[in-house]
Amino acid sequence: MSIQVRNLNKRFGATVVCDNLNLDIGDGELVALLGPSGSGKTTLLRIIAGLEVPDSGSVLFHGEDATSADVRERKVGFVFQHYALFGHMTIFENVAFGLRVKPRDVRPSEATIRAKVMELLTLVQLDSIAGRYPHQLSGGQRQRIALARALAVEPKMLLLDEPFGALDARVRKELRRWLRRLHDEVHVTSVFVTHDQEEAMEVADRIVVMNQGRIEQDGPPDEVYDRPATPFVLQFLGDVNVFHGRLGSAAGKDGEISFVRPHELDVVPAAAPGTVEATLVQALTVGPNTRLEFRRSADQSFVDVEMARSDWMALRDRLGLATGSTVHLLPRKVTRFAAEDVDFDPAAMI
């Protein structure tokens, strides 16, 4: 089922959380709503689900206006950040809930319910613990049960609110892949909210980047990363160095700000067109990567360079680099925005 959002507005008191949003989500797509906290992504998701009422604008399911439809009629599956499992029910009963509360005339028989629930528990690989209670499960298991519960009513779409937010790093990674695989199997239209750009890039077909109630960019992960539409998107999707004024070999205009990602800077021994002179302040190696911190000679600002650890070893030996060495940095790829577009404080995003 496709979802269309038209001219959607929502405010909480004086705060605008959805500022005239327009969005199209195709049938069977897996879309990530990505943004910092307070960007309106969760509110948008809750409005689509019917848990929140917009001030104006409409939500259409498959072209049909669903704005005033009750939550129950929307047939959506919703997965909450903190699982929202029913603590007094067994895992089996949690998953069966959506089937048991159906009106009598359409309620499946006990045998059908049992078969359906066990099928879903097998799908989320937790069929062996149907008789346990939610508190006896780990976070990752609970979230899988929450997913199975949402899928039990055969929703037309699956909405996930920071589904992996409360889990530790390793489990998150596992569940991401698992969600991706599940979507490839079930093919239900899915929208998930996240503030983790890595998660969005890894799982989604398409990323919708949101900031302050507006959609900054909407596109496939590679496009959003490689061709950011706004300085915000550029900065939100990964670390970036900011250079004021001219930089790189292309003719830069005055009043432009240039952005270069740390892994898109080469360290060269001699000055060349487009290079920047800098002094090595420190080198930090974390796992397979090394992060070099430089200080620009021109304005004393810091520049980060990232490379594989082995590349750093080779470079260090070749150029005889040590803390305090002066080198030149050559950007391979520069993204420029007019200075007036860059109206936010990068430090505020940390």
Partner: peptide, 16 residues
């Protein structure tokens, strides 16, 4: 209210 919201989304009526 999260559990109540979950129940609503799953199709439960007010009394249910």
């Amino acid at each position: 209210t999260e559990q109540e919201e979950a129940a609503r989304v799953l199709g439960a009526g007010g009394w249910q």
